[in-house]
């Protein structure tokens, strides 16, 4: 009898321990109540910048900044549910998201990229649509060397995909992709790896890679060259804001972090990542600085 009770007790104890272990592991990264830690989640385009800003912010304020990637939709959801102090989104807020407050810290563009050896120098919007929907499947049809087109698309849920599709008025179900990729870096490697590939990535990431010698070519959009300078000047047609998002007005210390991220103290970090500092702060910065890097 004692044996049975003993074994039952130990069994339930062990199960309880296991349950505790598992639930402890499953708890999502909750936003900290204490003022000494900030949790940021969301867009993988904003995350590298936020992490760099966070490092500098940590050094000056002593507040720890945790940056986790997971896409714009997750950033918005986490900010709304209080799982993160600040969400990161690489798109503007849409209708139905008025409960959130957004703060633009930088701007970025999306450009179409092909392999450097591809003779095609430009694609009209209509040609891009026809290529991505599979109506044009050979480079010969758009003035290139004859050969099959490899369409590189992004995985569902990424804001780069959503913006690209919205800009060209395509539904994702119409896209005839040959390769589906995750982040910008994988897209650049995929296009660099084959002469017939065409994809779209963040201008910042593509410019950075092209400068390092990766064999890709950034195509102009509506005759505007895909450069950071053109995004900065507001001339590039497919640009997007990189936002920090909070539920309602930000509280301390999130407020301090957002102010810091929009201040001129971080412009060098923004430019290091080939992004464009937010327009409002840029205007203020130009007044005091006579020679910005743009010529």
């Amino acid at each position: 009898m004692t044996r049975t009770i003993l074994s039952l007790a130990s069994l339930s104890l062990a199960t309880l321990a296991a349950l505790l272990l598992v639930t402890a592991g499953c708890r999502p990264a909750s936003s900290s109540q204490s003022a000494s830690r900030l949790v940021l989640t969301g867009s993988s385009t904003v995350a590298p910048l936020a992490a760099e800003i966070g490092k500098r912010f940590e050094a000056s304020s002593g507040i720890r900044v945790d940056v986790q990637t997971g896409g714009s939709s997750r950033g918005l959801a986490d900010a709304r549910q209080g799982l993160a102090d600040i969400g990161m989104a690489s798109r503007a807020l849409e209708a139905g998201e008025e409960d959130l407050a957004s703060f633009t810290i930088a701007r970025d563009g999306i450009c179409v990229i092909v392999h450097r050896d591809n003779p095609v120098a430009r694609l009209s919007d209509a040609q891009v649509v026809e290529i991505f929907t599979g109506r044009i499947a050979d480079w010969g049809a758009v003035g290139g060397a004859p050969g099959p087109v490899t369409v590189v698309n992004k995985a569902e849920g990424r804001s780069t995909l959503e913006l690209f599709l919205k800009h060209f008025g395509i539904d994702n179900r119409q896209v005839r992709a040959s390769v589906v990729i995750g982040d910008n870096e994988q897209g650049i490697k995929t296009v660099a790896g084959q002469a017939g590939a065409v994809g779209y990535v963040s201008i910042g990431a593509a410019e950075h890679a092209a400068a390092r010698g990766v064999p890709i070519k950034l195509l102009p959009m509506r005759s505007v060259a895909a450069t950071t300078a053109n995004v900065r000047g507001g001339r590039y047609p497919l640009a997007r804001p990189l936002n920090l998002v909070t539920l309602g007005e930000p509280k301390e210390p999130a407020r301090r972090f957002i102010d810091f991220a929009r201040s001129e103290a971080v412009h060098d970090l923004v430019e290091d990542l080939s992004l464009v500092p937010a327009l409002e702060s840029l205007a203020a910065g130009e007044a005091s600085r006579p020679s910005p890097t743009e010529s």
């Binding site: 990637t69 997971g70 896409g71 939709s73 997750r74 995985a155 569902e156 849920g157 990424r158 589906v180």
Partner: peptide, 10 residues
Amino acid sequence: LEMAYAVGDH
């Protein structure tokens, strides 16, 4: 590919 970006039913 999609877990980090998925919410709700997705």
